[in-house]
């Protein structure tokens, strides 16, 4: 379980980082999205992997970490997902505006002397 998930996180992160280093803005935006999946899963996994653990308390009760899932990474990731969306949106618009201004979708705003 742990092995598979960490391999998955690694693959997501590696693909994301590789794309971050590419010259086209669209590649970078896809890379950022992949990287944010990896980071979200990474943070989430810090609460350990629990299959079939209840995430919601019984009414009137108090929970502990042996019986319930760890809510803190979940709360962190939940906001991270929403903020990640906002970031993607902002970046997409900057990308479009930059393409409109400069006529190229290269990250430097101009084509390199020789094609990459």
């Amino acid at each position: 379980m742990e092995l598979i998930l960490s391999a998955g996180i690694g693959a997501l992160a590696a693909s994301g980082v590789y794309l971050l280093l590419r010259p086209r803005t669209y590649q970078v935006i896809i890379g950022l999205s992949l990287l944010s999946y990896a980071v979200n899963l990474f943070i989430f996994s810090m609460g350990r992997l629990r299959v079939n653990a209840p995430p919601v308390l019984d009414p009137g009760g108090a929970g502990d970490l042996w019986r319930y899932t760890d809510p803190v990474p979940q709360a962190l990731v939940l906001t991270a997902i929403v903020i990640g969306f906002a970031m993607t949106a902002l970046f997409l618009v900057v990308l479009l505006a930059s393409r409109g201004f400069t006529g190229t979708d290269h990250v430097d705003g101009r084509e390199p002397p020789r094609g990459d």
Partner: peptide, 17 residues
């Protein structure tokens, strides 16, 4: 570089998990 980054993240994640 990407492989190193991904491998590192995977390693740390695995260690903590």
């Amino acid at each position: 570089l990407a492989t190193l980054a991904g491998g590192g993240v995977a390693l740390v994640a695995y260690t903590v998990m």
